[in-house]
Design a protein around this nucleic acid. Structure first.
Lengths: 91, 91
DNA sequence: CATGACCGTGATACTAATACCGGTATAAGA
DNA sequence: TCTTATACCGGTATTAGTATCACGGTCATG
């Protein structure tokens, strides 16, 4: 295997990331945000719906800047999705 | 055109990002950091040398966590590479 | 010199991100 | 109803990230 296919957990993390971005977008349209971030609306839609679960670093960076989100917060919250279920997963 | 090829500026930004990560790695070996971050040493090398100019968001996230770097700082410093030359760059 | 560890590069394989197209569904407005 | 705007979806095209293999160079050690 030369390139590990995305695991279900990674896809779930991608959906979580998308939900995060969608929430931050709020009422604004996809086209507006995509244009401001310099990406296509289709790409933004794929990221938001989790169909592009591992987008490029700079794509998220420019989106975060447009949406007013912090990269560290995004990374932390998404890391929680793949975090080992120590004992407080559900709670 | 279906997928915009990376511009020279984007590649330069990738090299800058790589230099940033390499500096943060310091004395530690590539293999050590790559293993800790859960990626292959070759991939880390490509990122550090700028041969993978737009790595995945989560790849950088896990690397930043391993190296003790802040995502916002990385994004900000890399954005400066592609930032519009306000007044003193081009000439 | 031989060996091993680390780094670098090239080639190769395969999956995924990005972008565009056409179609569809829904809601708002004329 | 018709039109418009927005968003979702499938397909397609192309580039790029990720991983492995192979080879070469450097340095330290024997």
């Amino acid at each position: 295997m030369v390139r590990t296919p995305l695991t279900p957990l990674e896809r779930e993390r991608g959906r979580f990331l998308g939900a995060l971005l969608r929430q931050a977008r709020g009422e604004r349209s996809m086209a507006e945000i995509a244009a401001a971030a310099g990406i296509s609306a289709e790409t933004l839609r794929k990221i938001e719906t989790g169909r592009a679960p591992t987008p490029a670093f700079f794509t998220i960076a420019t989106l975060a800047a447009t949406l007013g989100l912090g990269m560290d917060e995004i990374a932390t919250r998404c890391a929680a999705v793949t975090a080992p279920p120590e004992d407080s997963a559900a709670a």
